Amino acid sequence: MRKIITTSLVLLTVGGLAMGCQGVGKSDYHHEASFEAKLIEEFEINNESWDIEFKRSDSSNITIACDGKRQDNKSDPVTIDQEGNKIVVTQKDQGGAIAGFTFGKKGKIYISIPDQEVDTITLNNDAGDIKMKNVSALNIVFNNHSGSETIEGLSADKGEFTSKDGELKLKDSSLNELTVTSGSGDSYITGVTSPLMNIASTAGEVSVKEIEEAKRLRVETGSGDIAVSYKTPPATLKLNAASDSSDISIGLDGFKETQSTEQSVAGTIGDAAHALELVSRSGTIAVK
Score class of each variant (00 low, 15 high):
I5T: 14
T6V: 14
S8C: 11
G15S: 04
Q22D: 13
G23H: 05
G25N: 11
K26N: 15
K26G: 13
S27Y: 14
D28N: 11
H30S: 12
E32T: 14
A37D: 00
E41D: 09
E41H: 10
E42K: 13
F43H: 03
E44P: 08
E44V: 14
E44A: 13
N47Y: 01
N47W: 00
S49V: 10
W50K: 09
D51K: 07
D51G: 06
I52T: 05
R56Q: 14
S57E: 06
S57V: 07
D58F: 04
S60M: 13
T63H: 05
I64P: 02
A65C: 08
C66V: 14
R70C: 00
D72I: 06
D76S: 10
D76Y: 07
T79R: 06
D81M: 12
Q82E: 05
Q82R: 12
E83H: 15
E83V: 15
E83N: 15
G84C: 00
K86V: 05
Q91P: 03
Q94K: 08
G95Y: 03
G96A: 02
A97Q: 13
A99W: 05
A99T: 04
G100T: 09
F103R: 15
K105D: 11
K106F: 04
K106L: 02
I109S: 00
S112T: 09
I113K: 00
Q116S: 14
Q116T: 13
D119R: 15
T120G: 12
I121R: 13
T122H: 11
L123Y: 06
N124W: 05
N125Y: 04
A127N: 12
D129A: 13
D129H: 14
I130F: 02
L138Y: 06
V141H: 15
F142Q: 01
N144I: 00
S146Y: 04
G147W: 01
T150L: 12
I151E: 06
G153V: 06
L154A: 11
L154C: 11
A156D: 01
G159V: 08
E160T: 10
K164C: 07
K164E: 11
L170T: 04
D172L: 02
S173P: 03
N176V: 05
N176R: 10
L178R: 01
T179K: 07
S182M: 12
S182C: 10
G185C: 12
D186C: 09
S194R: 07
S194H: 08
P195I: 13
P195T: 13
L196N: 14
M197V: 10
N198I: 10
I199E: 03
I199M: 06
A200K: 15
A203N: 12
A203G: 11
G204F: 01
G204N: 03
K209S: 11
I211P: 02
E213H: 02
T221A: 11
D225W: 02
V228A: 04
T232F: 10
P234M: 03
A235N: 15
K238M: 14
D244M: 08
S245N: 03
S246R: 14
S249A: 11
I250G: 00
G254N: 02
K256C: 09
T261Y: 09
E262W: 12
S264D: 02
A266Y: 05
I269F: 01
D271W: 07
D271A: 11
A272T: 08
H274W: 07
L276P: 00
S280F: 04
R281V: 05
G283L: 04
V287H: 01
K288R: 13
K288G: 08
